[in-house]
Amino acid sequence: MSMQAVLSPFYKLFEYFYESIIEKVEGAGDFALHVSAILYWTFKKPYRFQLFVDQLYFIGNKSLFIVALTSIFSGMVITYQTYIGMKVMGAYTLVGPIVVLTIAKELAPVFSAIIVAGRCGAAMAAQIGTMKVTEQIDALEVMGISSRQYLGVPRVWATMIALPLLNLVFLFVANIGSWLVGVKVLGIEEAKYYSKLHAFVVPNVLWEGIIKAAVFGFLVGIIGTYHGFKVQGGAEGVGKGTNAAVVWGMIIILIIDYFLTNLLVPILYNI
């Protein structure tokens, strides 16, 4: 066997890794350019306030029902599971604060963001992707209109504003669900359910959730629009872009959640 034949599989393996790395680096560069373009066009005139309001209505108002429905059942199930655990230790007076903290700090921002990534991130990628394959984006550019300013900027900032509001709706409705199950179904005395709340639930707990939701909102908007502008080809490309927007949106939310918690806890609670 010649030396060339022996080395051939290694060469192919090297080539595979090399191309894969180049592709990832190119993708990261492309994404960074998209983010900088969105930031750049945010501060350039004309400011498209009406488009921003339209997107805020679509992302915020039209997501209310699905967020409320998800949150009430999340609050109910978390309360039930927490009660089972706490009852063993005889500490069921802690059910109220534990549930509120869990929802305010984690469940409300993360679940709201995942719902919006699934509903609106996908819609952004599909709308912009379809406009790209049907040359509507070229039509905007030929007219001298920045497609990123016209389509990207309103969507990104509307998601960033809508998500903290949806997070508060989630928190409110989930706590109603928690109260219903805790007090009305499981029979925890109302006074005991509320007794420790003031000791654990401080305003910064709310702020932690709101800040997280705003960051997730920015990321969902950026990822959704990025995958829309990246679409190539026809219907298949739009499908791939939509899928990537949802998958990457959800993955990034969960990864960033950990690092954001690490960053915010020392700042907000002096721990």
């Binding site: 406009m131 509507q136 039509a139 030929v142």
Partner: peptide, 11 residues
């Protein structure tokens, strides 16, 4: 002004 192949109207 540009007329695109499939008109590229905003749908």
């Amino acid at each position: 002004g540009m007329l695109f192949q499939y008109a590229a109207l905003f749908d």
